[in-house]
Amino acid sequence: MDAPLIARGVGKSYSADDGESNEVVGDISFSLGAGEIVSLVGPSGCGKTTLLNLLSGLTQPTRGAVLWHGQPLRDVPKGIGYMLQKDMLMQWRTALANVTLGLELSGMPRAEREKAAHSMLRKVGLGPYFDYYPSALSGGMRQRVALARTLITDPEVILLDEPFAALDFQTKVVLQSDMAKLVRSEGRSVLLITHDVEEAVSLSDRVIVLTNRPSRIKEIHEIQLDCDRNDMMAARDAPGFTALVRQIWSQLDARMGMR
């Protein structure tokens, strides 16, 4: 399997005010394969978001290297999309105008970018709401707009930093299912940070468990459930799901919590 994104011995340290080195990410090596969904779970403060920033090219590692199609990653490439927990929508722009923002900045003509945005909003189930402002949308709908904004630039790899954490369970499960169906049908790769172990197991092809800071990989779980992998409730009902969740929880330090 081709791996567009590879972490090879990646580590990150920061200098503290007293001159001491503060090591956040210890030594991380793994690959994100084409069309694969992978989740990262670990104790609070273990450096998950720092690792995601390294893998996106937003920051550079102190040690090791991040490879994008075999070449060292020096900046954020066009093929990577990044979606945060907060939707970061511009309140003065409609759903359509929020989705077209990246295309607008790239210089695409208005008619062309709006046609693409209408198509993407239909894909995420928001076709009729193109002219709504964020204040008129629910939390789940706003996250769908944010997802459409991420997908419209046609990223090969999508990095997700707890994008469903603030949603109620029903909305979360529906959005997870819709996202999984959409990204798998288009062969995109997804790397997800989550504090929700059930979310990680139901959504992912692999779950990577990290240690406390400085983070290292404790174990990688291959998730093989006999069900429709785009149906999050079917995944939760599948044989072996609960055992996997319990096993991963047992590898986390419950006293430290999750972020």
Rank of each mutant, 00 (worst) to 15 (best):
G127E: 14
Y82N: 08
R188K: 15
M141Y: 11
S202G: 06
I208H: 00
Q143T: 12
L96E: 10
G139V: 09
A117D: 04
L96P: 10
D75I: 02
V190R: 12
G125H: 07
S185F: 08
T100W: 00
P72T: 03
V76A: 07
D178C: 07
G102W: 00
L159P: 15
G102S: 07
L167H: 04
Q176G: 06
V174M: 05
I158M: 12
G79C: 02
R110G: 00
V174W: 02
V124P: 06
D131G: 03
P109I: 03
Q71F: 01
G139L: 09
L160R: 04
P155E: 14
E114I: 04
S189M: 15
T94N: 07
P163S: 13
L105D: 05
F130W: 04
Q143M: 14
R144V: 03
V173R: 08
E104T: 14
L121T: 00
G125T: 05
A146W: 00
K123G: 10
R93G: 07
N98I: 02
G187N: 07
G139H: 13
D131E: 15
L105C: 15
M108A: 13
T171Y: 00
Q85R: 13
E198W: 02
W68N: 10
L137H: 11
A146Y: 00
L73Q: 08
G140P: 07
L121V: 01
E114M: 07
G127Q: 11
Q71T: 12
L96H: 04
E156Y: 12
D87K: 02
R188H: 14
M179W: 01
G187V: 10
L151M: 13
F169N: 12
Y133P: 09
A117T: 04
R113A: 00
V174A: 07
D168R: 06
A116S: 10
I208N: 02
W68F: 10
E198S: 12
S202W: 03
L121N: 02
R184S: 09
D205Y: 05
R110H: 02
A95K: 01
L67C: 10
M90C: 11
V207K: 04
L67D: 10
L167N: 08
V173G: 01
P155S: 13
R74C: 05
R74P: 07
I193P: 08
E198A: 13
L101D: 00
G81I: 04
A111I: 02
R184K: 13
A97G: 11
E186Y: 04
P163F: 13
V201T: 00
L96C: 09
L175D: 06
G79S: 09
H69L: 03
M90R: 13
M108R: 15
K123F: 01
T153F: 13
I158R: 04
